[in-house]
Write a protein that binds this DNA or RNA. Structure first.
Lengths: 231, 231
DNA sequence: TGACACAATATGTCTATACATAATAGCGTA
DNA sequence: TACGCTATTATGTATAGACATATTGTGTCA
């Protein structure tokens, strides 16, 4: 009976349900893997996988010897996919457009040098481009590429393919830092077709290849943009 | 030899390294689990776990029978922790302050009713509050709680403890939708101590308990706020 | 009483094996 | 050639058993 195919999914969802329905209260210790394995008629490894996923979701906290307890303040995390702009636009059912604006090689200085941990004067390629959804501006891209780390970027042609797309295929990264915030539109206002000072949604990203910075990019969206995720 | 303690971490990191160093190029098929198990002197299950994690990170794509290949456009995902405001402020080393602003029970209507999938007139408790970091406004919270789903919220006292904190301990959620965007400050400007129309960073969240909406909240931050994550 | 060592314990990980399942590739037939 | 069935194959999941490791709690000794 209940040849219930006690898969780790079943177990995970059932435990999740018990937490949601307050059978197991926040902070409470839940039965050990062995006990649950008994209850569900599964192997401990199966229960382990179920609990491990719940812990990743932040629904429970696990500690050796201490056991598993329902998270008191479920510090859950939202996950946002970071796709290519092109894919993002196309996924919304619109036609992607790309407009190259400018490119120049400069020496690192000031805030940019500091944020990248570079000595003043390190050579950077500074690229600006505009991404369109249909005929409407979608994202203004303002990017610095560290030529020491990615020498090939020196001569890359960004007039047809965006530097982002070029980079993901050419220079994989190992670490990254993302930050998102609201700002008032500055010089990019004209490219985005909005008034100077209008609110914009800014995403900044720095990527590294094992301690060496690859690129710093500032992606500016008009305020109609929404970054959405579900869980 | 290489009694190398071939843990799944070791394997995962080594594969990750090979991808980063372009030993295995984007789009390329990498050896099967069996082969890798052989190479690393591990069981297939161990290799499986390593690859499964890499797939979750978006670094590789796996399909039955087709095998595992290096993601062409690594659609990686950034994960943002969604902590309690209080913890967020305290983690920044500042003193958390809370100011209750208003609370009223209203009937659902218009956009709010629509977004929550509620019939017009469903009873909601509408709460407004301000969260402070030190003496500076940190977040303006504008929340609707669906009383059908959380009857206890009818009489809860939000003058000392914020509705967010009350909810996470009282009404765990099973699903959620997050969205983030930039906007121009409206009526909340005065509470945040900024000029009307100044850019603000807005986080909206809807949570559900198994198809039943719990709450809709709009969290408004002054533009100095940054949402940051690393990976 | 306090500090420290140690045993007990729950989770963490690995192995070997088996069967399940999705998806491809190839074969045979119309 | 086109279509559809089938065998094959790589991943997906489950199992029992074992050992590893972190952490708690206890007991001992100063």
């Amino acid at each position: 009976m209940t040849r219930s195919r006690a898969s780790y999914r079943t177990i995970r969802d059932e435990i999740s349900r018990r937490i949601a329905s307050r059978v197991w209260l926040p902070g409470a210790l839940i039965p050990g893997e062995e006990a649950l394995a008994g209850e569900f008629g599964a192997a401990r490894a199966t229960v382990n996988r179920a609990l491990r996923e719940l812990a990743e979701q932040g629904l429970v906290e696990r500690r050796r010897k201490a056991g598993t307890r329902v998270a008191l303040h479920p510090v859950r995390e939202a996950r946002f996919a970071i796709p290519l702009v092109r894919h993002e636009v196309e996924a919304a059912g619109q036609v992607y457009g790309y407009r190259f604006l400018s490119s120049v090689v400069v020496g690192a200085k000031g805030q940019v040098a500091e944020r990248l941990g570079l000595a003043d004067g390190a050579r950077l390629r500074h690229v600006q481009a505009l991404h369109l959804a249909g005929s409407a501006p979608f994202q203004f891209e303002d990017r610095y590429i560290i030529l020491d780390t990615v020498p090939a970027a020196q001569d890359a042609d960004f007039s047809a393919i965006g530097p982002n797309e070029w980079l993901v295929e050419t220079a994989p990264f190992t670490h990254a830092e993302f930050s998102f915030f609201a700002d008032a539109a500055g010089k990019e206002a004209q490219h985005l077709g909005i008034a100077p000072g209008a609110p914009v949604f800014v995403g900044e990203r720095i990527t590294w290849l094992a301690e060496r910075p690859i690129t710093l990019v500032r992606m500016v969206h008009p305020s109609r943009y929404r970054m959405v995720t579900r869980l």
